[in-house]
């Protein structure tokens, strides 16, 4: 129940940001998008997804996210009501929800890969948005675009710290699949 309330709250925050997204791409992409994805993932955490659906579910989430990474989609979501509605439907239901539902089945290597991919994509987008010699979105100015680029870079840095620091202290999340591969302690004598 708490999760549903929290998901509702995240969704309402995303809706309340809608009047601002036309002026500022940072709010659009780095505040509203994450709020929508979070709303979906709070719901998705409750799903018991059958193991064999993990692959397709992940593909759905990643492809949907990739579509929303295109500057063209941002423009469309501002200009075309159909795209606007699609944003409110697909980001929670086709990105956040499937990602959260599949996550518990994803092995640690694939998790690491996805995290690394997320960071590198953010940095890559950061590079593109700060270096592009032209406007990538018709709806936003070059200055805004560069601010968004820097925002991607800051987000990537924050994620790096968030994901890396626990690894140094031994709190890495694992799942059933990894347990089969885990090495229990005190087994090997020091050579």
């Amino acid at each position: 129940m708490i999760r549903i309330v929290m998901a509702g709250t995240a969704f309402s925050v995303a809706c309340s940001l809608q009047p601002l997204v036309g002026q500022d791409p940072v709010i659009h992409v780095l505040a509203q998008f994450p709020a929508l994805i979070l709303a979906g993932s709070l719901l998705g955490g409750r799903f018991r997804l059958p193991q064999h659906l993990t692959g397709p579910t992940l593909v759905l989430a990643l492809v949907s996210l990739a579509i929303w990474m295109l500057p063209r989609s941002l423009d469309a979501a501002l200009l075309d009501p159909v795209w606007m509605v699609a944003k409110f439907v697909t980001l929670p239901l086709c990105v956040g929800l499937p990602l959260a539902a599949a996550w518990s089945h994803v092995g640690s290597v694939l998790r690491g890969f996805l995290k690394a991919q997320a960071i590198s994509m953010l940095l890559f987008l950061g590079f593109l948005y700060t270096h592009a010699p032209m406007r990538l979105c018709n709806s936003y100015l070059v200055d805004d675009q560069q601010r968004l680029g820097l925002g991607f870079v800051y987000l990537a840095c924050a994620l790096i710290l968030w994901w890396i620091i626990p690894v140094f202290f031994g709190q890495i999340s694992s799942n059933k699949k990894d347990d089969d591969n885990d090495v229990s302690r005190h087994r090997i004598e020091l050579r």
Partner: peptide, 21 residues
């Protein structure tokens, strides 16, 4: 290489209680 280090890192972190270990 990143994949290779990821596997090493995961196994070391879980066996020696984190990379600091």
């Amino acid at each position: 290489f990143l994949l290779y280090y990821l596997e090493l890192g995961l196994k070391i972190a879980s066996r020696y209680n984190g990379l600091l270990g």
